[in-house]
């Protein structure tokens, strides 16, 4: 009962109250949504101890058992503890422990600027490569669906560069006005695709998602869906 029924009741009560609160401006219901996200943030910090602990355990055991690539686990642990110490004790912070944790000049900020930012930026930048390789592979006219995908993507790609007007100029220069008109039309077509069929598709997806979320939320609140709660006994 304490392990299974109580959690389901809690889910039901919290969920229902938050839904109902949306319609009640009166205190304390008016801000309940905000309060919940505050609560969540606080729970998440406590939970981090579990996650951070797991990170340490995994890498310590890798080093201890000398598994493959154990050397890199030392690097991870080192990075973790140095950054943690720099942040928690605000090492080198110009305003001491009272200062903002990200204040310029502190070890925390220095590590952030010289290591964290380039790593993050480069990982993000890999997208440029992957976007190219994915489009090479995926945009092939294998069937109707894939052809539509290809055409839409290609028109937009073309319309986003100065290319159409250059090509149109070329054709106009060569006296082929028909082609020149066609290429001059590409930017308009780009806008049309974005504003009309794209918008329609987005709306269908969004309405579908909303209904999916509503039904999923109801299953959770009513206790129909309870996989996340884990095992009954033992």
């Amino acid at each position: 009962m304490w392990r299974r029924t109580v959690p389901i009741m809690i889910t039901f009560i919290v969920g229902t109250v938050l839904v109902v609160a949306e319609f009640i401006p009166h205190k304390p219901f008016g801000n309940l949504g905000e309060d919940f996200s505050l609560y969540f943030d606080i729970i998440a910090v406590f939970a981090f101890i579990l996650g951070g602990g797991n990170l340490c355990r995994v890498h310590f055991s890798k080093v201890y058992r000398k598994k493959t690539d154990w050397q890199f686990s030392i690097v991870t642990l080192l990075g973790f503890f140095v950054m943690l110490a720099a942040g928690l004790f605000k090492i080198g912070n110009p305003e001491g422990i009272q200062g903002d944790v990200t204040a310029a000049g502190s070890l925390f900020a220095d590590l952030y600027d010289s290591m964290f930012t380039p790593l993050q930026g480069t990982m993000y930048a890999l997208l440029a490569f992957f976007v190219a390789s994915a489009s090479y592979r995926a945009f092939r006219a294998k069937n109707i669906d894939a052809s539509i995908l290809l055409i839409a993507a290609f028109v937009i790609l073309l319309g986003r560069t100065p290319a159409p007007s250059l090509i149109a100029d070329f054709f106009a220069g060569a006296g082929i006005t028909f082609m020149a008109t066609a290429f001059n039309f590409v930017p308009t077509l780009t806008d049309w695709i974005m504003d009309v069929p794209n918008l329609a598709g987005q709306r269908a997806i969004l309405i579908g998602i909303a209904l999916g979320v509503i039904s999923m939320a109801l299953r959770l609140i009513l206790g129909v869906e309870r996989t996340y709660l884990g095992s009954d006994s033992k």
């Binding site: 440029a128 190219a132 090479y136 945009f139 092939r140 294998k142 290809l150 290609f154 790609l157």
Partner: peptide, 19 residues
């Protein structure tokens, strides 16, 4: 623009090869 052109070039070439 050139990178864009490269992406488009590969798409075109890929489709020709496919056909």
């Amino acid at each position: 623009t050139i990178a864009h052109a490269v992406v488009m070039f590969f798409i075109v070439v890929g489709n020709i090869a496919y056909f």
